[in-house]
């Protein structure tokens, strides 16, 4: 099929789909309406389990099993990237050359690194109380380490980021989530049921039963997964070179 014919086909199909979507939009409940039966029930359930952040309660208590699926997707994607971006037979590793960094950039990056790291850990730790949680905080914590790459160079980043350790921690935190789930079964309730721990006082760090623990496991998993992913991509960009003889 020529590009022109394909474009016409896309426009035709797109016009049909646009008409169907517009018709569907007109029949949806009005934007901003007051009727949210699932939302109201989720808020009531979260308050009953003394979790201040309803979204954390939905993710790690009411829909904890779905979050396990999401975690498996993340884990599988990281595994896929590690396999795809490995060093091939016709490639070799060049040790990265030390790079010149402007003094203000270096100073600013090294100043922000600990602040960003602590912010990430704070967002993970307060996931059950305030906006944020394991997913968001994990990404902040993982990217904060890469300020080392901006502020110094790749060799410095590799020293603060032993990839093997992060790969192992990634797997360990994924299994920690599963173990917490099975602990519910052993305690006589269901898989990932929030009955294991006392619910605590509303709006304190230890409230919400098993939610803070699952949240921390996810935070660790996401942080390690992002570090490993970025490491694989950076390796491709910085270290791995094709053999010149090809």
């Amino acid at each position: 099929m020529t590009r022109r014919a394909r474009l016409w086909l896309v426009l035709l199909g797109g016009a049909g789909l646009a008409a169907l979507l517009a018709a569907a939009c007109l029949r949806l409940p009005a934007f901003g309406g007051a009727r949210h039966p699932y939302g109201d029930r989720a808020v009531a359930a979260a308050l009953a389990r003394r979790t201040a952040n309803t979204i954390a309660s939905v993710n790690f208590d009411q829909r904890a099993f779905d979050t396990m699926g999401e975690m498996s997707i993340l884990f599988a994607a990281v595994l896929g990237c590690v396999v795809l971006l490995r060093q091939a037979r016709d490639e070799h590793r060049d040790p990265p050359r030390p790079a010149e960094v402007a003094a203000p950039v270096r100073r600013y990056a090294l100043l922000t690194l600990p602040v960003a790291l602590v912010t990430g850990l704070y967002v993970i730790a307060h996931g059950q109380l305030s906006p944020g949680g394991g997913f968001q905080g994990g990404v902040v914590a993982a990217t904060s380490l890469h300020l080392m790459y901006l502020g110094a160079d790749y060799a410095a980043l590799e020293r603060v980021r032993p990839v093997e350790a992060y790969e192992i921690t990634d797997a360990l935190s994924a299994s920690a989530y599963l173990v917490l789930g099975f602990a519910g079964v052993l305690a006589g309730a269901a898989f990932l049921a929030n009955t294991l721990l006392p619910l605590g006082t509303f709006n304190t760090l230890s409230s919400g039963g098993v939610v803070p623990l699952l949240n921390a496991a996810i935070g660790m998993e996401v942080a390690c997964a992002v570090v490993v992913l970025l490491a694989r991509f950076l390796d491709q960009a910085v270290e791995i070179e094709e053999e010149s003889g090809e």
């Binding site: 808020v43 939905v58 993340l74 971006l85």
Partner: peptide, 26 residues
Amino acid sequence: VVDPVVQALTLTDVVVGATVTALLLA
């Protein structure tokens, strides 16, 4: 308050979207 269920679904969506992007870029 707004519906927390769809917000949690959006969070799932963002995470899965990011991992799919990473895999496709690899």
